[in-house]
C-alpha cells in the first residue's frame, strides 16, 4: 500500500475481492464488489505519524522503566 502512496495515489480501488477476504480498514463500496481505501491527506498523515511517534516513545519509556 505504501508503494501506491509513494507514486502519488490518493486512493486505491480493488475489484473482485471475495467477501470477507479484505482487511477491515478497506471500505466495501455498497454491493458493487469493489473495495476502496482512501489515503488520509498529507497534513493529517503528519499528525497521525506524530501521534504514533509520541505513543511509541511513551511505550519505550515504559519498557525502559520496567
Amino acid at each position: 500500500m505504501q508503494l501506491f502512496r509513494d507514486v502519488g495515489a490518493k486512493a486505491v480501488v480493488a475489484a473482485s475481492v471475495p467477501a470477507g477476504s479484505a482487511p477491515v480498514n478497506w471500505q466495501q463500496i455498497g454491493d458493487t464488489g469493489y473495495y476502496a481505501h482512501v489515503f488520509p491527506e498529507k497534513r493529517e498523515q503528519v499528525v497521525f505519524n506524530e501521534k504514533n511517534r509520541q505513543q511509541s516513545e511513551s511505550i519505550s519509556v515504559e519498557i525502559n522503566q520496567h
Binding site: 501506491f4 507514486v7 502519488g8 495515489a9 490518493k10 486512493a11 486505491v12 480501488v13 480493488a14 475489484a15 473482485s16 475481492v17 471500505q27 463500496i29 455498497g30 458493487t32 469493489y34 476502496a36 482512501v38 491527506e41
Partner: peptide
C-alpha cells in the same frame, strides 16, 4: 457508485489513484 464514493471521499478530477485487479 464507485465513482461517487471516491468523490464523496474528497477525490477530485485529475487526481491519481491506484488499482488492484482488472
Amino acid at each position: 457508485k464507485v465513482a461517487k464514493y471516491l468523490h464523496d471521499a474528497g477525490l477530485r478530477a485529475g487526481e491519481p489513484v491506484g488499482s488492484a485487479g482488472w
